[in-house]
Every structure is written in structure tokens, then in C-alpha cells.
């Protein structure tokens, strides 16, 4: 199936939970965060879609004006088609249902996105930081991230763009 056909199939099943967004490229579909677990279950189990592989989960911070996004790259080995799902989050309270039980690889993908962007995956059984230390402050890949000044008594020297070492 082409991306447009996949989008139509999702629209027939879920109606308004699949959004119309003309700014997105052809291979991306934006869906509502609250409905995401149902949509994902359908996408995995429906014999015509049969998305049996989750390739990647990425977070994107689109800056001050824009939202925080989760991107899911799905692929079907059976039908050899793929699609990218986009979910927009409220920046102050980014929450989305976890699909970790559906595709097991989602476990670490969601932990990584949580680590870097602070997006909370509700229903994840072990949502801890995966790369940064457990007691790290802040979400490093967000645009407004400020590195912490000290970590366990180790002072981090601040470096200014033009002046060099402070």
C-alpha cells in the first residue's frame, strides 16, 4: 500500500483521530495522542496493514513556537510498506500512551526519548533514563536546555561562545 492508502485506511477506522495536516510530507500521518494505543494496536493486527516492525521512535523539539513531537517509523515486512506517525505534545505536559507492550523494541526507544525530551510514556513498565545518569537534571535535546552547573560536586566549567573559558 502507498502512504496515501494507509492514511485512508486509518481514517476510515478512526475518523477524526487522524488529523488533516497539509504541512506534513506525504509519508507522515498525524494522529491524536490519546487514541494512539488503539490506532497502534489496529495498525499491528489489521491483516491489510500488518505493521510488524517498529523501526524507530524519535522526539523533535520544534522550537519556542512549535510543539514537541514524537515520531514513530513503522514498517511492514509482510507488505513492504512503511509510514511515519507524528504525535504533537503539549510542551508543559508531554504525555502519550506507551506502545512498549505492542512492539517490544519500543521499551528502549521510549526510554531514550524520555531521557532526551522528557516525553512521558504512560503505561511503560520501566520508564527510567537510559543514557544520562538517573539523577541528571533537565532534558538535553530540548531547545531551551541549560546544562547543570555541577554534578555530584564536579563543577562544570562554563564556556562562552566568543570569550572561551570562564
Amino acid at each position: 500500500m502507498t502512504s496515501i492508502e494507509i492514511k485512508e485506511a486509518l481514517k476510515n477506522q478512526f475518523g477524526k483521530s487522524v488529523m488533516e495536516n497539509d504541512e506534513l510530507p506525504e509519508n507522515q500521518v498525524e494522529v491524536k495522542g490519546e487514541e494512539w494505543l488503539d490506532i497502534a494496536t489496529f495498525m499491528k493486527n489489521d491483516p491489510k496493514l500488518s505493521f510488524d516492525q517498529l523501526e524507530c521512535i524519535t522526539g523533535i523539539d520544534t522550537g519556542e513556537e512549535g510543539p514537541l513531537q514524537s515520531h514513530y517509523n513503522l514498517h511492514s515486512m509482510e507488505h513492504r510498506h512503511k509510514i511515519e506517525i507524528v504525535i504533537n505534545h503539549d510542551k508543559n505536559e508531554p504525555k502519550v500512551p506507551s506502545i512498549e507492550k505492542l512492539w517490544r523494541i519500543g521499551d528502549w526507544f521510549e526510554r531514550e526519548t524520555y531521557d532526551m525530551f522528557g516525553i512521558e510514556y504512560i503505561g511503560h513498565r520501566d520508564l527510567r533514563r537510559i543514557l544520562c545518569p538517573d539523577d541528571w537534571e533537565g532534558w538535553p535535546l530540548r531547545k531551551d536546555y541549560e546544562p547543570q552547573e555541577s554534578f555530584h560536586g564536579i563543577v562544570v566549567p562554563k564556556i562562552k561562545e566568543e570569550e572561551g573559558w570562564e
Partner: peptide, 15 residues
């Protein structure tokens, strides 16, 4: 990583 690496220790002699 001396400028933008938030996660890197700037010299092991700090520790």
C-alpha cells in the same frame, strides 16, 4: 566536546 558537550567532563584532572 569542550564547548557543546554537556555530558562530557572537561578533563579527567578535575576528578
Amino acid at each position: 566536546y569542550w564547548q557543546h558537550g554537556y555530558h562530557v567532563l572537561k578533563g579527567v584532572d578535575l576528578v
